[in-house]
Nucleic acid binder design. Structure first.
Lengths: 276, 276
DNA sequence: CTGTGTCCTATTGTCGGACAATCCGACATC
DNA sequence: GATGTCGGATTGTCCGACAATAGGACACAG
């Protein structure tokens, strides 16, 4: 893929330096061939090829989601490799979420990567890249209000009922309910569903995963956080009911801004790195 | 042998809820135990546990990025499993981007998942979830203008120079240059870098990957696309130079809207599913 | 002194084969 | 219809083996 070229790790022996050197050197020495005259010889291990082959068939929908994968022995015969090799390839696909094994089943089935899976991959990346809370918050400030606006124009009545249910459950939850955070997350998740946009949902979900742990701390430490969150949820729901995109956007922005305030009040530095 | 023990099926007969149900049921018929009295017994295969263990050490930074992983044989001894099992675990980590093998190296090194990796995972997910062009476009409409606004306040002069260089390269590229798309992508990528927000960059990059193939088609089919893109890039760069966030946002929004127009002109339906 | 050839060791990629566990479907039974 | 039994299919894990090669040490030639 051509986009890869930009990230190539090769030392990029651009003939600039080499040429200069050769020029003011005597003609005695034959010129050194500097540039990328040859491509690196491809020496892909078999397990990668196998997994790439299966992956291609999945992405091209030749293997449809839900189909059961042939047994490892069959695959080994078809690819003419050992079963261990097949298994290594399967582990790659499994980790990518392209195949999964229903709990307590033996054969594996083709699957489309579930949002959780992708989000958790993103979370790992963010954690290891030393992303701080403000970064996540900033991204939320970008995405969430617009999602709310979209949701306002596309929501169904059933979805609003679900939102109300979750919001009430959060409001009624006792002061130190450990899974109150889950309810907050669920509110966001439902809202995302209303927006009818898988792309944004995926992005949202990653943010939620990254934020969840510290959010729990925050809610615990800031007594007034609960009521403020509940209030914001009510306003947002009202905006959805009225199909008022601008209001939804406005209240969600306020809501997200409030998160940051909460963190400040809780004494959590905005520069705190997200972890785990 | 000892690995067998780990897989033993322990019924975990927690006596927690048994009494409640039995109490309010009549004595006539033995009460049917309905609810989730028992948790599903955990029967994780060894390769998953191994990979989870290593993953934890990586995420907790006990294994730092760049360190070389112990040889498979050592790991096998430490975990008391066979080398094949270790290898399956390593394939999972490899696919997640937590460990990589530098081209032509033997040992594996711990790594943080590179943005490309995450983005390509996201791309797979989007492809398989039948995401259409409008979905991606909508997400771009949400993200890109705000990124541009952030970039305007945070860019350095060097970054502007780089943007100008790429923009010029795009403007000067011949009419049917196949890698003109790459230059467009690079412009977006550089802009993302200016925003100083890894989270948004990650999201952006996924969108770019998903969009690239169809974008190439579009540019080929719509003659005036090139000049419009170049024009927008100039405006955006100017806004960055003036540190004018509002202008940057406005022009980027226009720019992204233009993409959709381009698709319409090219006769590509907005409902076209992203593929590959 | 730098580049090249040689040798050894550590480590990976792949293989063949083995066996216990267990899922699954087909039956038989009450 | 619910439950027990049985045999085959398939996976999880192991054992052991071998070729290929990366990495290093070391000698040698220009």
């Amino acid at each position: 893929m051509s986009t890869r070229d930009k990230n190539k790790i090769l030392p990029d022996a651009s003939p600039a330096g080499g040429g200069r050197k050769a020029a003011n050197a005597a003609a005695s020495r034959p010129p050194v061939i500097a540039g990328n005259l040859f491509d690196p010889v491809e020496r892909e291990p078999a397990y990668t090829r196998v997994s790439a082959a299966i992956e291609a068939k999945i992405l091209s929908r030749e293997l449809k989601s839900g189909e059961v994968l042939p047994p490892e022995t069959d695959l080994a015969q078809q690819f003419r490799v050992h079963r261990s090799t097949i298994r290594e390839a399967l582990r790659q696909l499994e980790s990518a979420g392209l195949v999964i094994r229903p709990p307590g089943a033996k054969r594996m089935i083709v699957s489309r990567p579930h949002a959780d899976k992708v989000a958790s991959g993103m979370r790992q990346a963010l954690v290891l890249h030393n992303v701080s809370f403000v970064d996540v918050w900033e991204a939320m400030m970008v995405i969430e209000p617009e999602v709310a606006a979209l949701a306002a124009t596309r929501r169904t009545l059933e979805e609003i009922d679900a939102l109300i249910a979750v919001s009430n459950a959060f409001g009624d939850s006792p002061q130190s309910d450990p899974n109150a955070v889950d309810l907050v997350s669920e509110f966001f998740e439902l809202l995302g569903a209303c927006a009818r946009n898988q792309v944004l949902v995926l992005a949202k979900q990653s943010l939620a995963q990254v934020l969840a742990p510290s959010l729990a701390q925050m809610i615990d430490r800031v007594p007034q956080a609960r009521s403020r969150i509940a209030e914001a949820q009510r306003k947002i729901i009202a905006a959805l009911q009225n199909k008022d995109a601008d209001d939804a956007r406005k209240w969600m922005a306020k809501h997200v801004r409030d998160f940051k305030r909460g963190y400040e009040v809780a004494g959590i530095s905005p520069e705190t790195l997200v972890s785990m």
